[in-house]
């Protein structure tokens, strides 16, 4: 399985080459084009209950699509709905990533997707909801973002502060606390940041350069109110 990011930047596409018999799972609707040797199946990852809990708990889609090179080698082209960069990671069976609900684009068959509950403070204030996707297992993992993806590398004990709405994914060796952006409650909200996440290494944190919620609020002001 080989992957290549085409047109890197705001409107990228991922080309994945599959040998005969290989398959990948992708977010429902992610497939742009593929070789005629590829079969597209809709699959409830983790069975019905797994899919149901993912749908309910993380807001992710109920079905993932499985793209299988069942009639010979071929390639698939994948893209996300929103404009933004994609990043390809390799899971080796030991490292795990927590991914916010819109961050998953595609993964190798060996990648396991679970929904994992967060603590109450993180769920309430983290802006990612109470449940996140946990990616574990082995193989390629493709994440997408809104805007550009920036990788923050944290050494053991090193800290970094991230606005919660800019999070894409982070390794499970990191830990984080939710805190007010400034020391005062009023200033925290008038600064426009509200709550922030203080990450502590070791591990990697992927952030996106734009905030989807903020963009939505900005667009909303131009939409005429219907009668």
């Amino acid at each position: 399985m080989k992957s290549e990011i085409l047109y890197p930047g705001a409107f990228p596409m991922v080309r994945i080459e599959l040998a005969e018999g290989e398959k990948i799972k992708a977010e429902s609707g992610a497939m742009v084009a593929c070789s005629p040797t590829i079969d597209i199946e809709s699959k409830m990852e983790g069975g019905f209950l797994g899919a149901l809990s993912r749908k309910f708990l993380t807001g992710e889609k109920f079905f993932f699509q499985t793209l299988r090179a069942s009639r010979g080698a071929g390639e698939v082209l994948l893209a996300s709905t929103v404009p933004g960069e994609v990043v390809v990671l390799e899971l080796d069976g030991v490292n795990e990533y927590m991914v916010q609900k819109d961050g998953f684009l595609a993964g190798a068959d060996g990648v396991t997707i679970d929904s994992q509950m967060q603590s109450m403070t993180r769920g309430l204030l983290g802006g990612e909801g109470f449940f996140l996707l946990k990616m574990s297992g082995k193989g390629m993992l493709v994440l997408n973002s809104f805007g550009a993806i920036h990788k923050i590398e944290l050494k053991p004990g090193q800290e970094y502060i991230v606005d919660n709405s800019h999070l894409v994914a982070w390794s499970s060796t990191t830990s984080y606390n939710i805190e007010k952006a400034t020391s005062g409650w009023v200033a925290s909200f008038t600064s426009g940041e509200g709550f922030v996440c203080r990450f502590r290494g070791p591990g990697i944190v992927f952030i996106q350069s734009r905030n989807p919620g903020g963009f939505g609020a900005w667009v909303r002001q131009f939409i005429p109110v219907s009668e």
Binding site: D92, G93, V94, N95, E153, S171, T173, G201, P202, I204
Partner: peptide, 19 residues
């Protein structure tokens, strides 16, 4: 080899080295 831990150190990448 199948790894069972992640090791972090000054000369390793931030995501750690499986070992």
């Amino acid at each position: 080899m199948s790894s069972n831990a992640l090791c972090f150190g000054d000369e390793f990448s931030a995501s750690g080295i499986p070992c």
